[in-house]
């Protein structure tokens, strides 16, 4: 058995912790495992990844980001529409997703469980890393429930969670573990994992040219072009202006960190949703409470 897992979620959601729990559980199970987070400048709310490789015998002889996973773990269903996570997934790869059972159908086999609802009930907050890791351990047949529980304890202790909160995370993990099946066909069909043949073709390599003029210099002259970054995708909550209450005091405009509120000549504010990260400072500061909060609707 040799499995490559790629986890998708958002900054602050516990994508790295979920990967570490899977990996530690496999280690406790006696497997060979490796986990790593994507390391970059990504911030809270931005799409992030982490990676786990597991083998039950041979040593792991691959490093770096996983481009061709055997399984995906999606920590929230919104990542499906927001970041198209399926790239590189093998055609019979498994999608493990935190979503209600009646989640949208994918072109891939899938296992779904509403970890968020369980987390809200057990932890009183939408904290899904332990639950999502449990889904992966069970669906892929990687570990026993004991190894998983211990891994949750170890990793949650590592990030400084209080003991009572750790135990509730264990409870959440056990519930998730028991709620999904092990996908036998997947596990068996998968030994040993194939490598994408395209990956081995030397035709994929090019010789890059020597550039001339300013091009060989790391420079940007289209300054201010970051509005092309759709940071609106980070949004977990959406501010909405109730224009019947708005007095055009421009407080929201002044305090928006990202210049996402524009003013008409008569000072009517407009929120620019392509880039609004949903920090909700505008809603907090609006003296007339004219800006309400809308939960971002998962796709």
């Amino acid at each position: 058995m040799k499995i490559r897992i790629r986890l998708h979620g958002r900054g602050g959601q516990g994508v790295k912790t979920a990967g570490r729990i899977i990996s530690t559980a496999c280690f406790l199970e006696g497997h060979c495992a490796e986990d790593s987070p994507m390391y970059g400048p990504e911030r809270r709310g931005a799409p992030v990844l982490s990676f786990v490789r597991v083998s039950d015998g041979e040593p792991l002889e691959e490093r770096g980001y996983i481009e061709h996973p055997d399984a995906l773990v999606l920590l929230d269903s919104s990542s499906v529409s927001r970041s198209s996570p399926f790239y590189g997934l093998r055609t019979d790869g498994l999608v493990i997703i935190n979503a209600p059972l009646l989640a949208p159908k994918f072109a891939f086999p899938s296992v779904a469980f509403d970890v968020s609802s369980a987390a809200l009930r057990v932890l009183k907050k939408d904290s899904v890393s332990a639950g999502a890791a449990a889904l992966a351990c069970k669906a892929l047949g990687l570990t026993s429930i004991e190894s998983l529980s211990e891994a949750v304890r170890m990793e949650m202790n590592e990030i400084g969670l209080r003991p009572e909160l750790i135990e509730r995370n264990v409870e959440l993990a056990r519930e998730c573990f028991s709620s999904v099946p092990t996908v036998k066909s997947f596990v068996h069909a998968h030994d040993p994992s194939p490598t994408d043949s395209n990956d081995e073709s030397s035709e994929k390599l090019v010789e890059i040219p020597q550039m001339v003029g300013l091009q060989p210099i790391a420079a940007i002259i289209a300054t201010g072009n970051s509005r092309l970054n759709e940071t609106g995708l980070w949004r977990l909550t959406t501010p909405r202006i109730d224009y019947s209450k708005c007095t055009k005091c421009i407080v929201c405009f002044v305090y928006c960190p990202d210049s996402c509120i524009t003013l008409e000549p008569d000072l009517t504010p407009h929120i620019q949703y392509e880039n609004c990260k949903g920090c909700m400072i505008c809603a907090t500061e609006c003296p007339l409470h004219a800006i309400s909060e809308e939960r971002a609707v998962p796709a």
């Binding site: 400048p41 990504e42 911030r43 809270r44 709310g45 931005a46 201010g224 072009n225 970051s226 509005r227 092309l228 970054n229 759709e230 940071t231 980070w234 005091c249 421009i250 407080v251 405009f253 002044v254 305090y255 928006c256 960190p257 990202d258 210049s259 996402c260 003013l263 000072l267 620019q272 392509e274 880039n275 609004c276 990260k277 949903g278 920090c279 909700m280 400072i281």
Partner: peptide, 24 residues
């Protein structure tokens, strides 16, 4: 506050965290 200049030199879409005080 109404005298706050309307011109924006900091443009939307920065990679900074949501709610960053320093960015304001």
């Amino acid at each position: 506050m109404k005298d706050t200049p309307r011109e924006e030199y900091l443009q939307p879409g920065s990679p900074l965290c949501a709610g960053c005080g320093g960015e304001i």
